[in-house]
């Protein structure tokens, strides 16, 4: 009799534990999603609704705010600049970073430790601060207020990640595969293009997107280094005090959309990337 009771309470506790577990997961998911949903309601509502009270809890699918956003002077140029800078950052950080990642994964060489330290050091440094002296430097070289100048700074931000991520990606390709290619008539370059590159391409794409988003999201350096050619983040930041609410929310939403896509595309690599970069 007592045994049966004991078992019952055990099963009960487990059942309650399960409920608690599931509801915490759901709650935490809501914690992430609901704020984004609120922003979406605001974006898909007419400007009047955005500043009215009380707020609806469902979007009215009015494109007024977005239209206003698109029509606001300089906004579309800022959007274009953001894409341009992020695109350049993406290309530069992979082209410059991937060879180093390959070298780290495949060679033992003198100074490797120092090099890794330099890379890690840049990650442990408030990098946007470097925008301050670069602003002066860029004025001297004519790079001030250009998309390319800003992309250079964003590449500095993205490079440590590009190196460490490609390092972990290359380390995931057994060197045996390359060696096999060498014995089968390839030189270093053809072995790389025929064997390593096809295997690594999805991962490279993921880290390129990562670099894109780093640049896309960066606020401080963008605000410091651009005046006429503002990126979207810099433009929004500059106009925070003056722009109406619906403009802020529409801009915020435009900023968020690539993030949603980005995380979805790279979700497979997110953990592998950090698992190795840890060490």
């Amino acid at each position: 009799m007592t045994d049966a009771v004991a078992i019952d309470t055990g099963a009960d506790t487990r059942k309650w534990g399960k409920y608690l577990y599931v509801s915490s997961v759901v709650l935490l998911c809501a914690w992430v999603i609901v704020p984004i949903y609120f922003l979406m309601i605001n974006t898909l509502s007419s400007p009047e609704t955005v500043s009215s009270f009380p707020k609806p809890f469902f979007p009215e699918f009015d494109l007024g705010s977005l239209k206003f956003f698109a029509g606001f002077a300089g906004m579309l140029t800022a959007l274009k600049n953001s894409v341009l800078v992020a695109g350049m950052t993406m290309i530069m950080s992979i082209l410059i970073g991937a060879p180093a990642g390959y070298a780290l994964s495949r060679f033992e060489f003198r100074g490797k430790g120092t090099f890794r330290l330099l890379i890690l050091l840049t990650r442990a440094f408030p990098l946007p601060l470097l925008a301050l002296p670069l602003a002066v430097l860029f004025i001297r070289t004519g790079l001030d207020d250009t998309a390319f100048g800003l992309a250079l700074v964003h590449t500095t931000l993205a490079l440590p990640f590009a190196v460490l991520i490609t390092f972990s990606l290359f380390s995931g390709i057994p060197i045996e595969l390359e060696e096999a290619a060498w014995t089968l008539g390839c030189n270093r370059l053809t072995a790389f293009t025929k064997v390593v590159l096809p295997l690594i391409l999805p991962g490279i794409t993921a880290s390129a997107i990562f670099a894109f988003v780093i640049s896309w999201n960066e606020v401080f350096a963008a605000a410091v280094l651009t005046i006429e050619n503002r990126t979207l983040t810099a433009f929004l930041l500059q106009n925070l005090d003056t722009s109406p609410l619906h403009l802020k929310f529409a801009g915020g939403f435009i900023l968020v959309v690539p993030a949603l896509i980005f995380i979805f595309v790279v979700r497979k690599y997110l953990f592998a990337m950090w698992g190795i970069a840890n060490r």
Partner: peptide, 22 residues
């Protein structure tokens, strides 16, 4: 669940500020 929980990773601090401003 992991996808949902990692979404904020891609969201800039400015956008996050605006989200909570809403």
């Amino acid at each position: 669940v992991l996808y949902i929980w990692t979404i904020p990773l891609g969201i800039s601090d400015l956008a996050a500020g605006l989200i909570w401003l809403a």
